[in-house]
């Protein structure tokens, strides 16, 4: 846990992150380019779903990111409330709009996939509805954090909301197993190994890695911005007094 506390110093963390940033960008561009190539050109069409299966390579990683970012934010909120690490709160606030963006991407690509496959843009089944709730949770968090005159209050209230909203994550994850829905069940993260062909798994995993790296890169950029915003607020206050 030592490195964890060592990195809790904002200046030290940002120095560390700045050194990491070019590597993340290079790796992200590499996996992203390979992912798009395999997803669009070098992978077979599905025997049932035809070419629309290619939407999966952006839809599924977006949905993973939507949940992953929420879990990251909730973990950050927990460590902010327990250990009072200010950086954890900075991370949660910096990640929120990105999480909302990925959720929206998952919803849009999902409905673009649903139209040719199910014949409808949207169905009110458990998976879709709970992802929509996730989207509202992101927006609610952003609204709550910004609703206070004292930013400290907003941070803490937001952190508690994030922890309360965590109940939605298992509901999303298991909704397709618990309810009979149009949405297909999970085919990658399963106990008995993925039930998906390797030629399709490769682009999926490449895209997922690229999305993760993109998020990491963006998180560093946004955290730096958030730290600067806080310093600006501080200087304004000391300027006034």
């Amino acid at each position: 846990m030592n490195w964890f506390h060592w990195l809790a110093n904002p200046a030290r963390f940002m120095r560390f992150a700045a050194r990491l940033q070019p590597w993340i960008m290079a790796l992200g561009l590499l996996t992203g380019a390979a992912g798009f190539y395999f997803a669009l050109f070098a992978s077979p069409a599905d025997y049932q779903q035809g070419e629309t299966v290619r939407i999966m390579y952006v839809h599924v990683p977006s949905a993973w990111m939507a949940m992953f970012i929420y879990v990251v934010m909730a973990a950050a909120a927990g460590s902010f409330l327990i250990w009072k690490h200010p950086l954890a709160d900075v991370a949660a606030q910096a990640a929120a709009p990105v999480g909302a963006g990925f959720t929206l991407m998952a919803l849009i690509t999902g409905s673009l996939w649903g139209q040719p496959m199910w014949g409808t843009w949207w169905v009110w089944d458990a998976r879709l509805t709970s992802v929509l709730i996730l989207f509202f949770l992101y927006l609610g968090y952003i609204a709550l954090v910004n609703a206070f005159d004292d930013p400290e209050r907003g941070s803490k209230a937001g952190a508690i909301l994030l922890l309360v909203g965590v109940v939605n994550i298992p509901i999303i994850k298991f909704s397709v197993d618990w309810w009979n829905t149009l949405h297909q069940p999970a085919s990658v993260a399963r106990m008995d190994g993925p039930s998906i062909d390797p030629s399709m798994l490769l682009p999926l995993l490449l895209m997922a890695a690229a999305f993760k790296l993109y998020f990491l890169y963006l998180l560093i950029v946004r955290m730096r911005g958030e730290l600067m915003a806080r310093r600006i607020r501080l200087l304004h206050l000391s300027d006034v007094s």
Partner: peptide, 26 residues
Amino acid sequence: MGGYATYVWSSYGVVVVMLAVMLISS
């Protein structure tokens, strides 16, 4: 793209545009 080109390309378009917008605005 087997008749589904609109759906496939527009979903990739949405993803690329949103990723770019988030990055650039940040």
